[in-house]
Amino acid sequence: MSVRYLSCGDTAFTVEFGNEISPEINGRVMALHAAIGHARKAGDLAGVVETVPTMRSLMVTYDPLATSRADLQPRIDLLIARGLTSGMASRRVTLPCCYDDPEFAPDLAEVAKRTGKTTEQVIAAHLASPFKVYVLGFMPGLAYVAGLEQSLYLPRRAQPRVRVPRSSVAIAMDMTTIYPFESPGGWHLIGRTPLWMFDKRHEQPVFLSPGDSLSFQRIDRKTYDRIARDVESGSFDWTKLVKK
């Protein structure tokens, strides 16, 4: 499979693996992201600043005072030629989500109506979806998580909300997401997690990473309140959400 190199000025270029969204293409993107990370840790690829994975491409940023496109591109080609099958150890993350409170899930009834399901069936389908974090962007910690069960596909709301509360769990198209901040948003709100997807008190303020496998665990309002208090006070144990 060939790649396309797209110019992004003299401080970046994009390695495009395809023009569609598929697990295979994203797997190669993530593998190159990891391979460049390993090479840099080993002291190679001097001048590379960082890499930005998306659904189907990897942007490589560099310092033109330390290297050049002509120097870097053959090295990237070599990494790709060596094979990108190894991939990286994917984390398995489970996020608690409360679907039961109408305040948390204002769009649940409408999603049920438009997909011809009961609200319980919508929740079950969301819980059963094999989610994967493809890309983070738009705002710090906002994850585009694909893998939503097909029967839940809906376009975005015709009228976006001006204010979506932090930690709202939402769906649109073939994806789900969790809002890291209060912000405007056009996705359907079907629940809320007591966790913060961006917590500046942490050394790693962004919880999710590209490549994470993700599933949701249903909690009731009481459990939500308890975890929310622990998250607020900083005593919540985040490590128990992650399996290697």
């Binding site: 992004c8 401080t11 970046a12 495009e16 998306t54 990897l58 942007m59 585009y144």
Partner: peptide, 27 residues
């Protein structure tokens, strides 16, 4: 399909007018 935004990227949405993306641009 969304891809990375380098400093100084000039995006042209449907209205056809250029926007140069600067320091606080989205990723």
């Amino acid at each position: 399909i969304s891809d990375g935004i380098a400093p100084g990227a000039i995006q042209v949405p449907g209205a056809g007018l250029p926007i140069v993306l600067m320091a606080d641009r989205q990723t």
